[in-house]
């Protein structure tokens, strides 16, 4: 029988963190920010069916980056938690803070006790009843939870994107401005992201009880490149 080599706990944690970071950095980033009437999440996502952004409950949205199967499992768990809670108590008793805490505990648990950490970072956004009570909870792969102000950046290359976002963010801006800026911030200079590579969804105060809504590709086109969006229409009418 061979004796296992001694590895210090510091080294174990460092290796795990590095492993998770590498996994996350391979994926593309997403940005979530507040605007005058709600919260918008913009993700770079070439797939039309494997979603990064999802509805959790009336005023709560979820977004994940990293390994799809891992954050999708967390997404479904969030929906289950919210629906069970809303059914057992009342729709008003479902709130993001407790869900964010559960996510943090689970991610922390997996990070310290399992062989492999989850290669994901998630965003739990909650629309407040008043404009300044919106919340963005950013939860990292090891269970660190951050209550972000104004905007959150998740995924690979976040340092650069966060810096760009810090410069571009304007308090109380309109949805169209927010989307345009988020796309520009994600793409960076010298690169263009088309609407087919984007997934955009909002929690909007004017949407009624279930405030989550996806923005269609046509609508994104009309916002990020109004000229291009108008062109195919005129050519098809000929």
């Amino acid at each position: 029988m061979t004796m296992p080599y001694y590895v210090s706990p510091e080294q174990v944690m460092k290796d795990r963190a590095e492993y998770a970071q590498k996994g996350i950095a391979r994926g593309r980033a997403l940005v979530g920010t507040v605007y005058d009437n709600g919260i918008v999440i913009v993700a770079e996502n070439p797939s039309r069916s494997l979603r990064k952004i999802s509805e959790i409950y009336d005023r709560i949205a979820f977004a994940g980056v990293g390994r799809y199967n891992e954050f999708d499992q967390l997404r479904v768990a969030g929906i289950r938690h919210a629906d069970t809670k809303g059914f057992a108590f009342s729709r008003n008793d479902v709130e993001a803070r407790s869900l964010a805490n559960l996510y943090a505990q689970y991610l922390g648990q997996v990070f310290t006790h399992e062989m492999k950490p989850l290669e994901v970072e998630i965003l739990v956004a909650e629309l407040g009843t008043a404009p300044h009570s919106d919340q963005l909870f950013h939860i990292a792969y090891e269970g660190t939870i951050t209550d972000e102000q104004d905007y959150a950046v998740l995924g690979g290359d976040t340092e650069v994107i966060r810096k760009r976002m810090a410069e571009a963010y304007r308090p109380g801006w309109k949805l169209e401005d927010a989307i345009r800026t988020c796309v520009r911030v994600l793409s960076g200079p010298g690169r263009e992201i088309t609407s087919s590579e984007l997934e955009v969804a909002v929690l909007d105060r004017s949407n009624g009880e279930r405030s989550f809504k996806r923005i269609s590709q046509e609508a994104i086109d009309a916002i990020i490149s109004p000229k291009k969006a108008a062109r195919p229409k005129s050519s098809s009418s000929k």
């Binding site: 499992q73 967390l74 629906d83 059914f87 559960l102 996510y103 689970y106």
Partner: peptide, 21 residues
Amino acid sequence: MSLPIFSPTDDPGPNFMATLA
């Protein structure tokens, strides 16, 4: 309440009643 995560072989899927159970 804990996070309702199930193993893939024991997953209730989109069935809310099974999740409740």
